[in-house]
Design a binder for these strands. Structure first.
Length: 352
DNA sequence: TAGGCCATCTGGTCCT
DNA sequence: AGGACCAGATGGCCTA
């Protein structure tokens, strides 16, 4: 509104200065009220150029209905008449309404951003690297989620599983170096190896429960020391988190599940995935694929021994109040409810 | 101290 | 008219 007002009067560059000026107070609402008051008063003096102070005072509290009248003092002498709807006089009542409206809009915007952040928090908890103490940034969370989806869809599409190096490479595409290190650390892979020895099968470790090539040592996790490194504590709570998920799956299904032939996984995805192929997943043709491992099953088939996954993954701590759709039925809840039937459904799905 | 990240405010636009 | 969504601006906080 003010921008339009100023643009009409050729004062558009002043808008931001005006906004800046009116914003240089604290963040609390009382200060905000003052700012709004000042802004609106400023709008009065700056915006309603033709409006005399006497008129405003005259307009006062009592004239709710006289908002339509104006133009009697367009002072045609100084500037030409403008087209478009005439500006309404900023009476005190209008100012009050405008202020209330602005406050309500601010509150809505805050809630909206809180909802968005809650959704991002939930997303952080389901991407392969989660730390309560060192959160991924928003942009990194989105990038990692995209890579994660891509990696999973590639696995689904091919029915093969990559080695850990390829998997981490895929996850870390386009991520910043700190995030790359974090993800690699969460996956217990020394990031230097897959960054500098791409394509090499460096440091493979085939532990008894390791489906991925693993390094025999643990990433120092310097920035996620101790309990901060959620990947270790959540190893059993996430499908693709470190080797915990491997043990999880294989302890549940074993390697010798004759029903799971990789050829059965070649069916088109349902629903079809719509992915921008910015990168390609390195295909590993190692004989390990014969284990017929299906990553997507992990999340859906979390073992019943999973320790208090609800509080870990979708605790209410991250929520700032209010009921969001994610809170009402978080993904984790879908996973845990009717777990056994879920197995059967998935088995049936992959057997058909 | 610069740069990154974030929360918040704000005005504009679109839709109901 | 009011709400949702968006983008720009701004200031605070933190870290290298």
């Amino acid at each position: 509104m003010l921008t339009r007002l100023f643009s009409e009067t050729g004062l558009i560059p002043e808008v931001q200065k005006f906004a800046t000026w009116s914003d240089d107070c604290g963040d609390d609402m009382s200060d905000k009220d003052d700012r709004d008051e000042k802004s609106l008063q400023d709008a009065q003096t700056e915006g309603s150029l033709s409006e005399s102070k006497e008129d405003q005072d005259l307009g006062g509290d009592e004239d709710e209905e006289e908002e339509e009248e104006e133009g009697t003092e367009e002072t045609e002498g100084e500037r030409p008449k403008k087209r478009g709807p005439k500006k309404r006089k900023m009476t005190k009542a209008r100012m009050e309404r405008s202020k209330v409206r602005r406050q309500k809009a601010n509150a809505r915007e805050r809630n909206r951003m809180h909802d968005l952040n809650s959704a991002l928090d939930n997303l952080r908890k389901v991407v392969p690297c989660y730390s309560k103490t060192q959160k991924l940034s928003k942009i990194e969370t989105l990038r990692l989620a995209k890579n994660y989806i891509w990696a999973l869809s590639e696995i689904l599409r091919s029915g093969k599983r990559p080695d850990l190096v390829s998997y981490v490479q895929t996850l870390c595409k386009g991520l910043s170096q700190p995030t790359t290190n974090l993800v690699a650390g969460c996956l217990q892979l020394n990031s230097r190896n897959f960054l500098t020895e791409q394509g090499q099968e460096a440091g493979r470790y085939h532990g008894p429960n390791s489906s991925f090539a693993m390094h025999p040592y643990t990433y120092p996790c310097s920035r996620l020391s101790g309990s901060q490194c959620q990947s270790s504590t959540m190893a059993n709570s996430h499908p693709l988190r470190s080797h915990g998920y491997c043990a999880t799956y294989e302890s549940l299904y074993g390697n010798a599940s004759p029903e799971y032939n990789s050829s059965e996984y070649d069916a088109p995805l349902s629903p079809p995935l719509c992915i921008n192929g910015n990168f390609s997943l390195k295909q590993d043709s190692s004989p390990d694929h014969d284990k017929n491992y299906h990553y997507s099953m992990h999340y859906s088939s979390l073992p019943s021994s999973r320790p208090s996954g609800h509080s870990l993954l979708f605790g209410s701590s991250g929520m700032r109040g209010g009921v969001h759709s994610e809170n009402l039925l978080p993904y984790d809840m879908h996973v845990h409810h009717d777990r056994a039937p879920m197995y059967e459904e998935l088995n049936a799905f992959f057997h058909n």
